[in-house]
């Protein structure tokens, strides 16, 4: 198969970027999208041109590293997959494929198609955990959890942190990402203890990072490679309001100043 590729090239975070067009011929339909880019890079290197930088690692749809905006959609035209699971048979021969990095103020471009998603790590650091130390915990079977609760928690926990939700959201909002973690932990008895303070602190961090506000368009869920549902956002909202009206946390001036 032959393709015309329009790829965003940007030397580094400071540089101005622009699109460059490449012609690629003889690509097998069974190639994955990343293998197609590998092949492009082999050609580029042979021609003394800098290879296209893009993030990727496991290439089986679970690590969440890959992140391309392909023909106007995160992770390309198919539903419920990551870019690394996209195969060239999903395109037509002679197609033009436009490849852009995730666009969000909170995901600055590092080089070409590589962006910095460390904002997600900072959000998790602000409270995306259960505060237990290693050791001294009860037996695993001591607290039964209904299958439906465990399943719902697992649905939320399956978030891979790729950032497609932010990338596709017209507001570059991170609500689905934050909600997935909050909903995962809030549904388990172990996570309930801190559910409210967790919602408070993670939302505060999300706002601080500069993500946009959710306007419930639902695009995040549609494009999520793990099909994480909007109901988790609703659960986050509930947790947050509960926290705000019930928790004994009252910000003092300094905290507000820092925040």
């Amino acid at each position: 198969m032959d393709f015309t590729l329009k790829i965003w090239r940007q030397k580094d975070a400071q540089s101005q970027g622009q699109f460059k067009t490449y012609q690629l011929t003889g690509i097998g339909a069974d190639n994955s999208f990343m293998e197609m880019l590998d092949e492009l890079n082999e050609h580029l290197i042979k021609n003394n041109e800098d290879p296209v930088h893009f993030d990727h690692d496991c290439r089986e749809g679970i690590c969440g590293t890959c992140s391309l905006y392909i023909n106007g959609r995160p992770h390309g035209p198919q539903k419920a997959i990551t870019t690394c699971q996209l195969h060239m048979r999903s395109f037509k021969d002679k197609d033009t494929i436009t490849i852009e990095p995730w666009r969000a103020q909170t995901f600055p471009v590092i080089r070409d198609l590589v962006v910095d998603r460390s904002a997600f790590d900072r959000i998790i650091q602000s409270g995306g955990y259960i505060s237990v130390n290693t050791g001294g915990v009860p037996d695993a079977n001591e607290t039964p959890i209904t299958t439906s609760k465990a399943n719902n928690a697992m649905d939320a926990a399956s978030c891979i942190g790729c950032g497609a939700c932010v990338a596709v959201c017209k507001n570059a909002s991170a609500m689905l990402f934050v909600a997935a973690k909050i909903s995962h932990l809030a549904q388990l008895p172990q996570g309930k203890v801190e559910a409210e303070s967790r919602a408070e602190s993670m939302v505060a961090q999300m706002d601080k990072e500069g993500f946009g506000l959710c306007t419930n368009t639902g695009a995040c869920s549609v494009e999520c490679p793990k099909e994480i549902s909007l109901t988790h956002i609703a659960r986050l909202n509930r947790q947050y309001y509960k926290a705000k009206q019930a928790s004994d946390y009252i910000p003092d001036k300094e905290e507000i100043h820092e925040g």
Partner: peptide, 13 residues
């Protein structure tokens, strides 16, 4: 071996 670019940048090759 052929590796392009420099050390002072993101250089995956």
């Amino acid at each position: 071996v052929k590796v392009l670019g420099t050390n002072d940048e993101l250089n995956m090759s």
